[in-house]
Design a protein around this nucleic acid. Sequence first.
DNA 1: CGGGCCTGACCGGTGACCAGT
DNA 2: AACTGGTCACCGGTCAGGCCC
Lengths: 359, 359
Amino acid sequence: MDILETRRGRRTLHPQRVTMKDVAEAANVSTMTVSNVIHNRAYVTAELRKLVQEKIKHLGYVPNRAAQELAGVSRPHVGLLYPAIINPFIAAVIAGSMRAASRLKVDVSVQLAQLDDPRALRTTMSRMKEAGVDGFLLPSPIAELAATAFRKKALDVPAVALAPGIPIAGMASVRSDERQAAYDIVSMLFDLGHRRIGHVAGPDSQGGSIARLQGYSDAMRAHGLAPDPHLVIKSPSFRFQDGLAAAETLMSSEPRVTAIFAANDTLAASVVATAQRRGISVPQDLSVVGYDDAPVAEQVWPGLTTIHQDAQVMTERAMEILEKGIKAWRKDRSIRLAEDVVVPYEVVRRASCAPAPVK
Amino acid sequence: MDILETRRGRRTLHPQRVTMKDVAEAANVSTMTVSNVIHNRAYVTAELRKLVQEKIKHLGYVPNRAAQELAGVSRPHVGLLYPAIINPFIAAVIAGSMRAASRLKVDVSVQLAQLDDPRALRTTMSRMKEAGVDGFLLPSPIAELAATAFRKKALDVPAVALAPGIPIAGMASVRSDERQAAYDIVSMLFDLGHRRIGHVAGPDSQGGSIARLQGYSDAMRAHGLAPDPHLVIKSPSFRFQDGLAAAETLMSSEPRVTAIFAANDTLAASVVATAQRRGISVPQDLSVVGYDDAPVAEQVWPGLTTIHQDAQVMTERAMEILEKGIKAWRKDRSIRLAEDVVVPYEVVRRASCAPAPVK
DNA sequence: CGGGCCTGACCGGTGACCAGT
DNA sequence: AACTGGTCACCGGTCAGGCCC
C-alpha cells in the first residue's frame, strides 16, 4: 500500500517506467538479486534466476541507463565528428557507427566539425571531453585536421582515424592501402595499352590524395613512363565544379591523354562530363577511372571503373578498436592507441575503360 | 580533509570529473545555490551569482547528464529510424537531426529499421519506447511503413513523418507540395514545346511516387494532353539498375517521347544513361528532368533539371515540432500531433532540357 | 567456511521544505 | 512577509559487507 502510494505520487516525468524495484517486488527478492541475474553473476540459484528473468520479461523491464551510468557502470563514450558536407563516405561512417555502437554497447555523440579552423576543432573536442566523451572517431579529412590541431599538445584520449591520407602520430587508423590500389588501377590502364595517362589529383589536405598520387607516379615509373608534370592536375577540392576546370586543363594538353585516373569518383564524373561536352567519347577515345565506388560511379554513363572500399566495415572495425582502447585507457591513462589496420580494397570494373585507341 | 579523503578513495570510472560539490566548496556555498545559478533561478544575489559562475568556468564544470536525468530533468528523447540504404536524403536527415538535437537539447537514438516487415518495425519501436524514447522522427519511406505497422493499434507517442508520400493519420508531417512541384516541372516541359512527355514513376510504397505521378497526370490533362498508359512506366524501385529497364521500355514506345520526367534523380540518371547508350542525345533529342536535386543531378552530363527540397531544413523543422510535441505530450498524454507543415520547393534548371525537336 | 541473498551507503544532481535576516 | 540560502530525501541503479544456513 505504502509503496503504491509513493509510486503514485512521485513527480518523475517518465511516469510509468518499470524499475528494478518493481521486478524485485514481483519476484519477492531484493533489487540486488535482480541486478545479479541481469549481469549473469554467480550466487543466484538457477531456480530464482529463472523466476526473475520471467518477471523481467513479463513486466517489460529495461534498465535505466542514467542510473547505471551514475552508479559507475559507464560505457565507453565515443565522439564522432563529421564535416558539413555529407558525402557518401561520411554517410556510411555515420550509419556504420550507429550499428557498431548498439552492438558494442557504446555511447556515441555526433558533432558537426568546422573544417577550416584547427583551433575551433580543438575547442569542440575539449568541450566533448568535458561532457564525458573519452575517445574519438575521426573520419578523413577531420583526422588530418586534428593532427594539425594537436601538433603541439598531444590528444590525450584514444582516437582512431578513418581512411586518413597520411599516418597520424598518436592515433590508431583503419584504412586501405590506397597507394597500392591506385598503383593497381593505373597498371590496369597500362595493360589496356594506354601510355599517356593523366591524373586529376585531389587537394593535399584531404583523404588519400597524396597516397593516390603516389600510387599513380609509382605505377608510371614502374612501367617505364617518364613523369610528365602536364599529366597531373591538382583540383582544389573533391567537388564536381572544381573537377570540371581541372579536367578541361588536362584534356587540352598535347599530345592528348588517352586515359585519366581521377582521385575520386566525383572528379571522374567531372572528367566524363567534360569529355561529353567536348564530343570526346568515353571509353572509345578516352578511358576514365575513379576512386571510392560512390553511387555516382554507377549512375553516370558509362559506369566508372573504380576502387571499392567498404566504409561501413572500416567504421565497424574502427569502433571495435576504439571500444577496446577506451577500456584499456581507463585503467591506464598512459596507453596510446597506435594500431594501423589495413583492410582490403577491390577493383570494380565498369564500362568506362577500353583498350587505348590505335594511333 | 575528510571530503578529500572520500574523493580520493572513490571508485568512479571518470576519475577527475569536476562535480557540483567541487564548485560549491570553491565558492563556499551549497550545491543548491550552484544549481540555482546554473538554471538562472531567482533567490541568488548578483554578487554570489557572479562568484559561482566564475568558479564554474575556472574549474571547467559541466553538469553530469546522467545525474540530471535521474533527478528528473529529462530531455525529450527522440528516436530516428533509417533504412539500410543510405541515400542523400537520409544522410541529410541524419545530419540535420544531429544539428537540431544539440541546438534544442534533445537526445537522439538512431536505429536501423528493416524495410520489409511492418511487425519488425513495430517491435523495434516498442523496444525503443521501453528504453526511454518518447517521440519518433520517421523519414520516408519508413513513415509509410509505420502507418501500416500501426494501422490497428495507433502509435501512442508523438511522431513526425518527413516527406511522406501520403498524409499519415496520427502523425505530424513536414513535406513539400510534391504534386504541385511535379505539375510545375511537367508544365515547364510543355512550355518548351514538348507534347509526348513520358514519366518513369517510382514504387507506390515509397516517398512521393504517388504525388509525383498525380502532378504529372494533372499537368498533362490541364494542357489538353490525353492520358496515355504507354507514357507511364513504373519502376519497381528508385535504384539505378531498375531504372535502366524502365527507361528502355519507355524509350522503345512509338511515337517517340521527346521528354521524360523521372520520379527521382537516380531514375533520371538511368534515363540519361539509356539515351546515351542508344545514341539519343540529351537534350537535343530528348529532355530529361528528375526530382530531389541529389548530388547525381549535378554530376551527370548534362546536369539534370530537377526539384530541390532542402532535407536538412525540413528535418530541423520536424525536430522542432517533435520537441514541442513531446513536451506537451508529457503533460497530457491524450495529445496527438497532427500539424502538416509544407515547405517550399524550387525548380533547379540545368542543361538536360531543351525545346522540343521540330518534327 | 563458503554459497546465496539482503542491507546500507553512494553516484551527482534536484525539488520540497526550513531557517535566518 | 519577502528574500536568501541551507538541509535532506530521493531518482534507479551498483558495490561492499554482513547475516544465515
